[in-house]
Amino acid sequence: MGIQDVIEGKKQWRAHLARVKALPPDYRIVYKEMQKYLFRVGPVGLLDGPLLPGIVDFFEEGVAAGKGVLELIGSDVAAFCDGLVKDSPTYADAYQESLGGKSRTTGK
């Protein structure tokens, strides 16, 4: 990654945070809690992929439609997050795979 990419990445991240800040309070609260959870779960590509900006796109649509955030995504926010990252590998998966993959070859 070159220095230009780092600067670009920072700019994009700041722009992203500005959009989050512009959301109504209930959306902002839910977004921030979701982000915390997603950082822990750690789907591969979380920081440079389309997932987080996509959530803000989706939330902006919900705001425009005059909906409350839980009306939009349901009250089980964790289930919504799990749906977002379903089928995408996490860093933990990658780690487990390295353990499982190694031992599998010795097992045969």
């Binding site: 996509g54 989706f58 919900g62 909906k67 009306e71 939009l72 995504i73 349901g74 919504f80 749906g83 977002l84 379903k86």
Partner: peptide
Amino acid sequence: VEGTVYTILL
């Protein structure tokens, strides 16, 4: 809810 459909579309 829309959120469920959103995750599927994603």
